[in-house]
Design a protein around this nucleic acid. Sequence first.
DNA 1: GCAAAAGTGTTCTCGGTACACCCATGC
DNA 2: GCATGGGTGTACCGAGAACACTTTTGC
Lengths: 232, 232
Amino acid sequence: MSEVESFFKSAFSVDNVIFGFDGRSLKVLLIQRGAAPFRGKWALPGDLVYPNEDLDAAAERVLQQLTGLSNVYLEQVKAFGAVDRHPIGRVITIAYYSLIKISNYAVTPASFAQSAQWHEANNVITDLAFDHNDILDTCLQQLKTKARREPIGFELLPPKFTLTELQQLYEAILDQPKGLDKRNFRKKILAMNILVECSEQQAGVAHRPAKLYQFDKEKYEALAAKGLSFDL
Amino acid sequence: MSEVESFFKSAFSVDNVIFGFDGRSLKVLLIQRGAAPFRGKWALPGDLVYPNEDLDAAAERVLQQLTGLSNVYLEQVKAFGAVDRHPIGRVITIAYYSLIKISNYAVTPASFAQSAQWHEANNVITDLAFDHNDILDTCLQQLKTKARREPIGFELLPPKFTLTELQQLYEAILDQPKGLDKRNFRKKILAMNILVECSEQQAGVAHRPAKLYQFDKEKYEALAAKGLSFDL
DNA sequence: GCAAAAGTGTTCTCGGTACACCCATGC
DNA sequence: GCATGGGTGTACCGAGAACACTTTTGC
């Protein structure tokens, strides 16, 4: 065996931390493993990357197989490559996280899972398979940092939402102890000029109906190019 | 060949974007490749990861072999895994960047390089080997973002430095068009209370000698835990 | 004494924060 | 009519930005 060949004995996988928001708290989608190793344990959805598959494509595939969704926010975080992280050989994994609109999610557990279930992102059991607790912590931290400075929170909400829903989302992501001030939050987010008011209103609620808003991505990008910095 | 075995035919490497600062501008250390593929081209220093080697350890090894330095600031950025990025097989690479004190650097080109040389970080030739231009751009962007919010700039300066040197460093990293205001910069950085004044002064300069300062890492960490946020 | 960089304060503006009451709807 | 969340404005404070001259040294 040539020296070079001895290097080509490794594999890599992708693992995907899928975040959702149910109106109250931030959730993560975990699967119960249907195959060894760690059969029966909770884990992040993931899979080995095919030899002719790009990393990003593999992450999209995992997401698509599990949730049926495509074209959603998906971002690589980092590689985890401890020598002994996988019991059957040298496998490094590339961690991604994605943000989905939880209402779009239909349960269609992929072949690699017995079942999939939403868990509280801020309070996940500590004995996930492999090094998945590490990975989850890192991704959660990254989400918290990034949500503060880029308008990615909207990926977790339905296209039309109320300002209160938006505020609750940010309170959940940033887990602020006492919550944010309603008037200041509205002043700030509206001042950015990246939301558009819909003509519709909330319906069927037992109180004054709220206005619905949409995030205007083009507007945001135009303003961002001119120096607007999203910052909460 | 079993299905699983077909996955274990890949390799991975680390590539290291080594930044330095010479008092005027931000630099990157590139090597001229001594072996195929891309022999003779400029490239980032990097190497295949040994089967029993952690990723971080591999990145440290590359840095050590090239510069003789260890225990320096080193951080993973992300994985690059396009299928065709390496001509001899499926190789994904994990990008790191490190920050070194350029004065400590002694030229000791490792076996994988013909020669190593500092290049202007903000103006690198566009035909580096592999996807190294991509990698470099990503790391440079990451450095710029991170240097604003965490006190990592000090890693690029000698232990004792003047406030003007520190300011020039930040002007180089952030490439601010008109530079920063001297009085405001000093006010802000001193107000953070993370620098300590040395008893010594600059010597041998043809003008009023400047006071020397050191970064106090313990102090910074204590304050950071109490909510200080470094921000320039 | 002159060139070259070090060092130093004040004013103004704007964004962040704290804070309490009336409004529209369903039942 | 009452319970529920929706919606709104003002006053204060502190941080950021703009701005120019005196001081110390080497030659």
